[in-house]
Design a protein around this nucleic acid. Sequence first.
RNA 1: UGGGGAGUCGCCAAGUGGUAAGGCAUCGGUCUUUGGAGCCGACAUUCGAUGGUUCGAAUCCAUCCUCCCCAGCCA
Length: 564
Amino acid sequence: MTTIDTPTRPLDFIREIVEDDQRSGKNGGRVVTRFPPEPNGYLHIGHAKSICLNFGVAAEYGGRCHLRFDDTNPSKEEVEYEDSIVDDVRWLGFDWGQHRYHASDYFEQLYQFAEHLIANGNAYVDSLSADEIRQYRGTLTEPGRDSPFRSRSIEENLDLFRRMRACEFPDGAHLLRAKIDMASPNMNMRDPALYRIRNERHHRTADAWCIYPMYDYAHPLSDALELITHSLCTLEFEDHRPLYDWCIENLPLPSRPQQIEFARLNMSYTVLSKRKLLQLVREKCVDGWDDPRMPTLAGFRRRGYTPAAIRNFCERIGVAKRNGVVDVAMLEHAIREDLNLTAPRVMAVLRPIRLVIDNYPESQAEEFDSPINPEDPAAGARKVPFSRVLYIEREDFMENPPKKFFRLSPGSEVRLRSAYFVTCTGVVRDDAGEVSEVHCTYDPATRGGGNAPDGRKPKATLHWVSAEHAIDAVVRLYDRLFVSENPEDVEEGKSFLDMINPSSLEVLSACKVEPGVASASAGTRYQFERLGYFCVDPDSEPGRLVFNRTATLRDTWARIAAAK
RNA sequence: UGGGGAGUCGCCAAGUGGUAAGGCAUCGGUCUUUGGAGCCGACAUUCGAUGGUUCGAAUCCAUCCUCCCCAGCCA
């Protein structure tokens, strides 16, 4: 065996930088990354991209990745979110070992470093109001003006800052600012805020502080203190990089991390902003953060997605600096690809109609072997009970079939998967004239559903379930949450909420499933043959299973029918 | 009209001066006890535009165009 023809995936620009750094011996060859979520919401598929990147790069280059909570704003953060983030990152399959940190772990050090900046004349306490500061900042095209407090003495700054820490002032009375350049063309360099007063309880440090550091200050220092080598973040922080570097250059830090920006993930038919996701939850447009229609990791988990599928998806979309929109079909492909190989097959009838086999003995019943997974012969077979009265899918029968409809119709013969060939002989109608029962005869010579002795080959194979053996189930059919490819792009006066798909959830409560799944536990995934992938929802109760549809199977007939 | 980024197939995305990878989607065919899956094939004479340099340019230079981000005491 040689590895010559092993196709090598080209490196993305970040891995290229990391490899260059390793070659040149920068950072002593160490690679340390971090995933720094703010605990103010649930993680979504966009975060998965960042998680896979950060943990992936670390693993590939023999380094490590820290999980660090960016908890510098007590008014937005909660423990519930922190717990969910821990669960989700673990579920995705990543491990930070002992390296779980919080920006708040560094509050004392961050404070001391702030005094250091003041002592060196690199920071000052401003006492302008928020509104005045905005006015002094200038605009995109006009430079800002120095605050009248910019020239306070070091002693006065130190005194004021210490009194800020001592909680002597109300919110907004003072602000610690970096002394950089009010005329900078980069707005972030016009004396950015470093510390603000927030007389508020923090979910971890409780009442220890009433001043809290800003992201732009806390982030680079946290990175440096943790000896992070490559600090990967999204594009919108690109113009913060000079400030990131400024903080590091002006303080005696133990290391010099490098910030590198990449494009965040956008996906069609999806919304990925924490604010909007929070709104969907708060306004009850969905059933919570883990609603299977949500693009949150908790939602995908409940929907039946596997961590491997999400990781493969993240690998496949790549990492670059171009803003784009990934087709949600790419994600759907990833989950089908995974489940096709791993999900046990089962027969389930979602919209049942009775199929009576007139020439099958009334009292008879038998069991057929059906493959658990044709893609994996080693998985073996399962027993499926069969009897005279079955349920088949209502849409698998048509009294007046159009061309190319190969399923059951008067006079036609189809294969019942793993059972027999069956020929439709007629229908029974209810009082309203609706077909309430389909009748047929079976060919005993086709037992097992294999080929007939005379070589007949039906053009269709139907799934079925024995009426007397079937168990009842509720099936929730999920579809995309939004009807628009870009739900954020709406006309004046409308919001993304107006783009919600009114039929994103259809609940079918009279479904029939083969008995073998009766004791399946929540989270178990199956392929319902010919229909799609489904998983058992935690809402299930004994005797009343609830399934969520993860993804449909490709349906060629539906395409043909839709094309007309 | 300041600054920072980005423009390669419908969507992601390689390519870094030597004559446009791959994936998704789409469309054919084949195979099939899932109209599933698999397999085979098609799918950018062209890289935002225009000039220029060069034997040769998506790659270098110039000019122009388009899109994204920045004026939170959010991250």
